[in-house]
């Protein structure tokens, strides 16, 4: 099976700072989570793969299309859905008119077919009831769903979502997870997030980035396993722990190298993520 995305040696510098440093990866069908601290290069990687910005060096294809040519980039964009970190809208447009506008930009010129498609995606994101409402009157969560609908319009084969759950309340996030999970059925979704819970619940694969490089590429279970045997409970904060905090139960949850006889706890994905960023040897992306 051909990978949806195949990238090799992607490098991009802003001034002298490397935002992407020799990144190679392959993505196949399903939801892949992209984790990393601020400034790790997640958004830059997404923007490069979405053809919003060209890389300085490196090569990649998406669904077989080469964005290094004008023709390839145009064909790639025909199969791409992109939800940027700060989408931005025309506030006086209705939800329907805005998604319709994006659909036209995606070259859907048959009016009735386009309107059916816009209705379909608005229904998919649960906005059918407010389709005639101006975007400036919608809540933040609804606006994010308008942006997701705009990304989904045209049934793209590759969906790039940059921190789509930022600013959403827990209920909205849960609804958004449902939508992303649905979107991941039958297509490739690359989801950048700070929320490790989103990755744990949605993704069958996770990539961790830091300083423009890929530090981990594997399953959420493999990432969690990195912290196995390194999370323990104690009555007081263990001075030898890399991190420790009092839990709601009153005991301390410590992360690091446990003392002998410590009461070990089940690690979470977040624990594994922290260990990956904290001095672990760099493991290149799976080729």
């Amino acid at each position: 099976m051909f990978p949806t995305v195949s990238a090799s040696g992607l490098t991009l510098r802003y001034g002298g700072t490397p935002a992407l440093d020799d990144v190679s990866l392959r993505l196949e069908e399903g939801v892949t989570g992209l984790l990393g601290p601020n400034g790790a290069g997640k958004t830059t990687l997404l923007r490069v793969l979405a053809t919003a910005v060209p890389a300085d060096r490196g090569v990649f294809t998406v669904l077989g299309h080469d964005p290094g040519t004008a023709a390839g980039r145009q064909n790639l964009r025909r199969e791409l859905g992109y939800l940027p970190q700060t989408p931005g809208f025309h506030p006086d447009f209705t939800a329907f008119a805005f998604v319709d506008y994006v659909a036209i930009l995606k070259e859907m010129t048959d009016r009735s077919a386009r309107h059916r498609e816009v209705s379909r995606v608005l229904q998919a994101v649960g906005l059918s009831d407010v389709r005639g409402k101006r975007i400036k009157r919608l809540s933040g969560g609804m606006r994010q769903r308008v942006a997701l609908a705009a990304a989904l319009v045209g049934d793209p084969g590759f969906l790039v979502l940059d921190e789509p759950t930022v600013g959403l309340d827990p209920q909205q996030r849960m609804r958004f997870r449902e939508l992303v999970a649905e979107a991941g059925e039958g297509r490739t979704v690359l989801l950048s997030t700070h929320q490790t819970e989103d990755v744990a619940m949605l993704c069958r694969r996770v990539i961790v980035m830091s300083s423009g490089r890929i530090r981990f590429d594997g399953t959420p279970a493999e990432l969690t396993a990195r912290a196995a045997g390194r999370v323990w409970s104690s009555a007081e904060r263990d001075p030898g722990a890399r991190a420790g905090w009092r839990t709601g139960l009153g005991s301390f949850r410590n992360v690091g190298d446990p003392p002998e006889g410590a009461e070990l706890l089940e690690p979470t994905l977040e624990d594994g993520y922290l260990f990956t960023l904290d001095g672990e040897p760099v493991r290149e992306a799976a080729a």
Partner: peptide, 11 residues
């Protein structure tokens, strides 16, 4: 204002 969301369309 919608420039970013329409940054990767074929038009």
């Amino acid at each position: 204002p919608a420039r970013h969301i329409t940054a990767a369309v074929p038009t």
